[in-house]
């Protein structure tokens, strides 16, 4: 059933496959983001309560969703590396971590920027912001651990274990923070009623989200290729590639 996947466990095949995939990801993400962002920032209706400051939502929410999704993807990669000894899965987890961290940081910064007009302060200990901050800490832990090892294969395994521990803890942390928040603050003003969003706001949001996801795919492909090269630098095919590159230029 999984036979068709086997060639992709070979680093060389994956390297070239990602090389072919990546430009398409880039083109599509550019297209989607161009349409989505112009629609969202210029044409979508302003929120009747929040005015134009609401438009940061089109960047903030995709970034927040992606930061969590990427952590989950990283944990899945780490699990498959531990269970099935897939060496490439380590590389993909390592490729994903910094992207997720950047999205978490974007979500935090846009969240703070949104909070200033909304709540009159850059930071409040809102449950969602707090869990996003802790998610960023978890990402930074994974990245720091990965960087601390000299041997990239060991680094991948260690970071993978940490990502798995983190993914088990993430929901616990999330709910404990939410519970802590309601306990200490009473009912916070919920930022937006998700189900009651008008379709004129919903469509640009969806297009933006798809655009950011495709951008993630493109960057992940690029980083994955670099990771493969770094881990296989002593292999003949990498040498041949390097020779071909230098002769070509």
């Amino acid at each position: 059933m999984w036979k068709w996947l086997h060639p992709y466990a070979n680093p060389e095949v994956s390297y070239h496959f990602c090389g072919k995939l990546q430009p398409w990801f880039f083109r599509l993400s550019f297209l989607f983001l161009a349409i989505g962002l112009v629609w969202a920032l210029a044409y979508a209706p302003a929120d009747y309560q929040q005015g134009d400051s609401f438009r940061i939502f089109y960047i903030h929410v995709p970034a927040a969703i992606l930061s969590m999704g990427i952590y989950f993807a990283m944990a899945v990669a780490a699990l498959s590396s531990l269970v099935w000894q897939l060496k490439l899965a380590d590389a993909s987890a390592a490729a994903l971590a910094p992207i997720g961290a950047v999205f978490a940081a974007i979500a935090l910064i846009t969240g703070a920027a949104w909070g200033k007009p909304m709540w009159g302060t850059w930071w409040i200990w809102d449950a969602r912001l707090t869990s996003e901050l802790i998610l960023l800490f978890l990402y930074l832990g994974v990245i720091a651990l990965h960087n601390a090892f000299e041997d990239k294969n060991l680094a991948g395994k260690a970071a993978g274990i940490l990502a798995l521990v983190g993914v088990i803890n993430l929901p616990i942390i999330h709910y404990s923070v939410e519970w802590w928040n309601t306990l200490h603050q009473g009912a916070t003003v919920t930022k937006l009623g998700a189900p009651s969003m008008a379709s004129s706001m919903y469509w640009p949001f969806l297009i933006c989200f798809v655009g950011f996801s495709l951008l993630t795919g493109a960057i992940a492909c690029q980083r994955f290729r670099t990771e493969i090269l770094a881990r296989n630098s002593m292999r003949p095919w990498v040498r041949n590639l390097a020779i071909a590159q230098t002769q070509g230029s």
């Binding site: 800490f137 651990l145 601390a148 090892f149 274990i161 940490l162 521990v165 983190g166 923070v177």
Partner: peptide
Amino acid sequence: LTVGIKKGGVLLSLLVLPLYI
């Protein structure tokens, strides 16, 4: 996770403290 790393002390706190929340 950090026992094999030479300067693991600060790294350890970065890894562990979020889990303690």
